[in-house]
Amino acid sequence: MFIKEYITEIAKATKSLWTGMRLTGHYFIRLKTVITEQYPDNRDTLKMAERFRGEVTMPHDENNQHACTGCTACELACPNATIKVITKFELTPENKKKKALDTFVYHLDMCTLCGLCVDACPTGAIQMGQNFEHSVYDRSTLTKKLNKPGSKIREGVE
């Protein structure tokens, strides 16, 4: 009786190992099921999702205009003090003083890419970019100025 149980147990054990190995073998001979992406080689075809949060960008239109009013809503929304908005006063045609954006400083090295600044922006001036390859040799290059030189606020944006 004992020997019979012993042999059945061995048979069951062998079968259980065989089941697992059969599955491994199934995938081993089917190369189509391989899902590995050869990352640096497929950079040309690699497409990130539309909403992917890679970095904060400030889109400019063809006239070198942006939509940032310098309201600092993004600066207040940021949990890590990643954004610093420096404003200046400009004279309007009616000779009135108006607050305008001078420099939009963005510290990518401190950013956790949470997207709260984009959520807080009332004019949609900043967006999340899809670029994710941020490695650099010098850390200071990660501090960026987002508004392009000579850019102005788009007309009609309040």
């Binding site: 539309e50 909403r51 949470c114």
Partner: peptide
């Protein structure tokens, strides 16, 4: 990634709902 914008630390929740509508 497609709906929330990130793969691991999604940060998709805001008080009162979710940050953006689903994809």
């Amino acid at each position: 990634e497609e709906t929330c914008g990130a793969r691991l630390t999604m940060n998709y929740m805001v008080p009162g709902g979710v940050m953006t509508d689903i994809h």
